[in-house]
Write a protein that binds this DNA or RNA. Sequence first.
DNA 1: CGGTAAATTGACCTGGGTCAATAAATGTGG
DNA 2: CCACATTTATTGACCCAGGTCAATTTACCG
Lengths: 244, 244
Amino acid sequence: MPPSCFADRFGDLITLSPGERSALARLEERERSLRRGAVLLREKDPLTELYILKRGTAMSYVLMDDGSRQILRFSFPGDMLAASALAYRDSAETIAALTDCTVAPVDRAAVRGLATEHPRLAGLIIAVDQVERVALAERIAGLGRTSAQARVAALLLELRDRMRALDPSITQSFALGLTQEEIGDATGLTAVHVNRMLRRLEIDGMIRRAGGQVTLLDPAALARTANYVDRAARLDLSWLGPAR
Amino acid sequence: MPPSCFADRFGDLITLSPGERSALARLEERERSLRRGAVLLREKDPLTELYILKRGTAMSYVLMDDGSRQILRFSFPGDMLAASALAYRDSAETIAALTDCTVAPVDRAAVRGLATEHPRLAGLIIAVDQVERVALAERIAGLGRTSAQARVAALLLELRDRMRALDPSITQSFALGLTQEEIGDATGLTAVHVNRMLRRLEIDGMIRRAGGQVTLLDPAALARTANYVDRAARLDLSWLGPAR
DNA sequence: CGGTAAATTGACCTGGGTCAATAAATGTGG
DNA sequence: CCACATTTATTGACCCAGGTCAATTTACCG
């Protein structure tokens, strides 16, 4: 049975029936490649389909009219891109590839088909949306009420966790793959201040940076300065019931 | 057929079959009242069910460990509360009633039942989640990249729109129903600075305040200072297909 | 090996926070 | 309907986290 990135995300949390697996695999059949830096979708572009990210990392952002940018979300394999196509005519955000990517375009009608034939997978999509919603809410709290240092620390921990979920060999050391300007645009800071914060985290012995790699030397202290909560451990999809 | 607050939200956008309507009405059958200020759910409380807000307004927030508060979202009739019960074991946020409220507790299992029997309603929930997600993303952009004045203006416009969606008689004048401290906790500002921003909006002739009522004197100018976009007009649920 | 993007660092500035003192508004019990 | 107790709103004086500007330095790329 061909694999499904979407299914892989919840491998441990829910057992999918062969029928469900193959339905998801069919959903991801078509593929499209994006070069690093390529824009999949621009703000206000008409939304005709959504995508499942199969390989690579992407980001979504909005450009403010003073020219500044706010990065809303980083995406990893298994994430849905442009999911707002399921509610809106046109995109509220720009989606761009941070690395070379492969995405699977998914027709809106295919989502309807999925919901009809596999109600449990519709439930799974709803659950994924909740994970997304909680993550966004957490960022709101971070932006509204935490210091620059805490926001940068929180971003490092979030990215480490999400990379580790995909590649368990990653523990405390990983390639961030972001410029300081991108970190700033994600945390609501300037690149200059991001630099100061990274330096401070380094001086305080919480991280080390070398050759594009970041090492979390003291994850506990980092988690404390970031107000970090490990949500992944608290997931519970049992309401979806057993596979039919 | 008894009414459903949830169904009412999309009256114009999607035609529900009688079967779908009554399924939604059944979902909201049980009722629970909350007094103003009452807490429905606290951070870390176990999540056993979700709720549909039938009457009144509520808010969800997190408390930071320095004692400050970030309001994540205001809720109006037809909104789901504690939807994260569909993904997590326990709550990431506190939900409290801003006014006297009526909520309808909904079992997680009932959501499964709904998805099984009415796939189109599962799709509707997915669509509502997207609306929610876009709204949260917009707030992230506001918090990360806009001025205090823009954030306060944006909140006024958002609340006006959401109240008007429920009560078309509301046009430019409405009861805000929030203290300046609450506005501050929603916009990532202090109550003192909210006061300064409201006063500036008033001096600049964009709003008037009297007796707890706010009047938007110059909605166009307000929208400009807020970077406001009317998303509601761009909704499109046609992918759900026609009622069976 | 140049050329450009990214990272660093210092000097200085400002939007929004903090603190503190009043003034209004809203409730409450009598 | 009134006097008092609590919130809530306002305002001024002053402070600081993070922004701005500008100059180097370093890393990466064809």
